[in-house]
């Protein structure tokens, strides 16, 4: 039996004024899959995320989420259908405490008496219990990223989108993040945009490469790593521990 796709885009086009940022994306991932989305800056990764989360209305093409057409749906309804996103620039409540964030996220789909337990569970899993009463605006960048990921997870979405989750994190935090993502995989589907190739190799199975609004390559992580063209030009700053930008 062919595995079903949790999300599928067909011919997705996004045009701003005169600029075509997405030029026909045919993309799909299966239930429980973890896919990494890579590509140089300007390739259209964040725009792609904005389209599928409903923040932007695509110029053309269609989007199917959990077997329903959601091309014209707005952000609220798509979030309610089970999609959560950690945005490229962390979008948090700078004046509220960490616990409040998790509570708001969990409270949307849980009954009142279930929320407290769910909040504690998330705080525990992400090992941020010691930050529970801290005001988010005062946290370090890496911690803010973690809180946002925790918040998104707390709303229990079927599809989790992470836009550069490892940015600004210490090496320890990155390792822990990789573990967390492994735990999330299976129960949730994930699409992760990243530049950090070491991190990608820690977590990924399949990688999609975006370039200039089109899918350049979609393959297993090992094959993508070995692709000469990509390695020299399109992959971020690091491959196999070497900084190719200085070559």
């Amino acid at each position: 039996m062919k595995p079903k796709a949790i999300i599928e885009t067909q011919g997705l086009v996004m045009r701003f004024g005169g600029v075509e940022v997405l030029r026909g994306i045919d993309f799909a991932i299966e239930y429980g899959e973890l896919r990494c989305l890579i590509g140089p800056n300007g390739a259209g990764k964040s725009t792609f995320f904005k389209c599928i989360t409903g923040q932007l209305r695509p110029t053309a093409g269609s989007i199917k989420f959990k077997d329903e057409w959601v091309t014209a749906a707005d952000a609220v309804s798509i979030a309610r259908r089970g999609m959560g996103i950690k945005t490229q620039v962390p979008s948090l409540y700078d004046g509220l405490a960490v616990r409040e964030h998790i509570r708001l996220a969990a409270g949307r789909h849980l009954m009142r008496h279930e929320v407290a337990a769910a909040v504690d569970d998330v705080l525990e899993r992400f090992a941020i219990r010691h930050l529970a009463t801290q005001i988010v605006g005062r946290l370090a960048h890496g911690q803010r990223q973690l809180v946002e990921i925790a918040m998104v997870t707390a709303s229990d979405p079927d599809l989790i989108l992470l836009d550069e989750p490892a940015a600004g994190m210490t090496h320890q935090e990155v390792e822990r993040l990789a573990e967390l993502i492994h735990e999330l995989k299976g129960n949730h589907s994930l699409i992760i945009v990243e530049h950090d190739m070491q991190f990608i190799q820690m977590i990924a199975r399949r990688v999609t490469v975006l370039h200039q609004g089109r899918i350049l390559l979609e393959d297993d992580v090992d094959h993508v790593m070995r692709d000469e063209q990509l390695r020299d030009v399109y992959l971020g700053r690091r491959t196999h521990g070497r900084d190719v930008s200085k070559t």
Partner: peptide
């Protein structure tokens, strides 16, 4: 109440509140 917390959330960051699935 939850509604009150949501009002404050809207004031702090309406966009994020939308992305969590609440209709501002």
């Amino acid at each position: 109440t939850k509604l009150g917390h949501l009002m404050i959330a809207i004031r702090e960051n309406e966009h994020r509140t939308e992305l969590l699935g609440y209709d501002p």
